[in-house]
Amino acid sequence: MKKIPLRVIFVSIIALALLVVTVFMARRLIVNHSFVSAFDKGDYQVEAEKSLLTMNFPESYVPYYNLGNAAYKLADYNSAISYYTKALEMHPSESKDCDIRVNLALSLCDTIDFYHLDSQDKIDTALFILYKARDVLIENGCAAEAEGEQGHDPEAQQLKEDIDKMIEKLKNPDQNSSGNQQNNNDQSQDSDGGSSGSSGPSDREKKIQGELEGKKKDAMEDRKDQQGSLEKYSDFIGGDQEGGPGGDLDGGDGDGEGGGSGKQVNPW
């Protein structure tokens, strides 16, 4: 009986291994491409994308990034935070790192209900979250910490500056409403001056009520502005990538393409 040469066995093993790798990579590309195509149509097929978490290589951040984008679009911000955090642990490239950080910061901010910050505890919690989102953007230099400086990602820098404004409004609400409150006081004084010269209890009650209503209105306007600052970003989660839908997952060029969302389109 003639023996099979070792060289033939060796070549056969290599060929079989290459076939397995090819099938594995082809499946990842197909699943990812299908996810991105459905995502662009508003259909978030997360189950198929979750299957890529098993034997998750190369570009291990991609499935977590995609799942984070889907969770964000579904308003499941806590899950989005978890997925984006995991994506950052997979060591994405510098440009993708900043994209993920922008999305993570947005997810953190969107857990805040700006319309119902009606107690100091809620305001303190909101400030804690905003500072955390700010730190996410500053880490690795995506946004610059010092005012007047620029980080290496414009979207991260703009979001960080918007978060700084939100923090300032929450920390100093009286300064934001001082102008309108002064107008209310002036109007009250004019009204008092136009009376018969006496200021009875009813006049004082009306003045106090007017000031309270003015503060409440100013607070609601501030909350609306803060919520609007975040909403302008939401449509840019899941934008097209530079490499197009379902880009390289084989790690050939090492630039991290292949996620369901990539570089955010500049919304400003």
Rank of each mutant, 00 (worst) to 15 (best):
F35T: 01
I30M: 11
P92S: 06
D135I: 02
K86Q: 14
S198K: 13
Y77N: 04
Q175E: 06
V136L: 08
K171W: 11
G246T: 06
E211L: 00
L104V: 11
V102E: 02
G260E: 09
A38F: 01
E145K: 10
G179F: 12
A146T: 15
K217I: 09
E149F: 08
A80D: 05
E147W: 04
A48T: 14
H152N: 14
Q264Y: 00
N183C: 10
L29D: 14
K3D: 15
K232Q: 12
G251L: 03
G214K: 07
G239E: 05
T125M: 11
K207V: 06
M1W: 01
Q209W: 13
E213F: 07
L106S: 04
G197L: 04
M1L: 09
K50P: 14
L130K: 00
A156Q: 05
L88V: 04
D174T: 03
Y72F: 11
A219Q: 09
A133K: 05
W268T: 09
Y72T: 04
G151H: 05
T22H: 12
R204F: 12
A38I: 02
M1E: 03
L106A: 04
D110C: 12
G252T: 14
F57Q: 07
D113A: 09
K73F: 03
G151K: 03
E231Y: 08
S177G: 04
K96Q: 15
G214S: 11
G68K: 03
D43A: 13
L104I: 13
Y44K: 00
G193T: 08
K86N: 10
V62A: 03
N56A: 06
A15V: 11
N66M: 05
D190K: 08
D162K: 07
S229H: 08
D153C: 15
L6M: 12
N140S: 13
S82M: 12
V36I: 10
A17M: 02
L53I: 03
A133T: 11
R223I: 07
N140D: 07
G238N: 08
Y84S: 09
E145W: 02
V62C: 01
C109F: 04
A15W: 08
A15S: 10
H33E: 08
V36N: 12
I13R: 05
L212I: 15
R28Q: 07
P58F: 07
Q182M: 10
I9S: 10
P201S: 03
A80R: 01
E59D: 14
D124V: 05
I138C: 12
D99S: 14
F35N: 00
I163H: 00
S177F: 01
F128V: 11
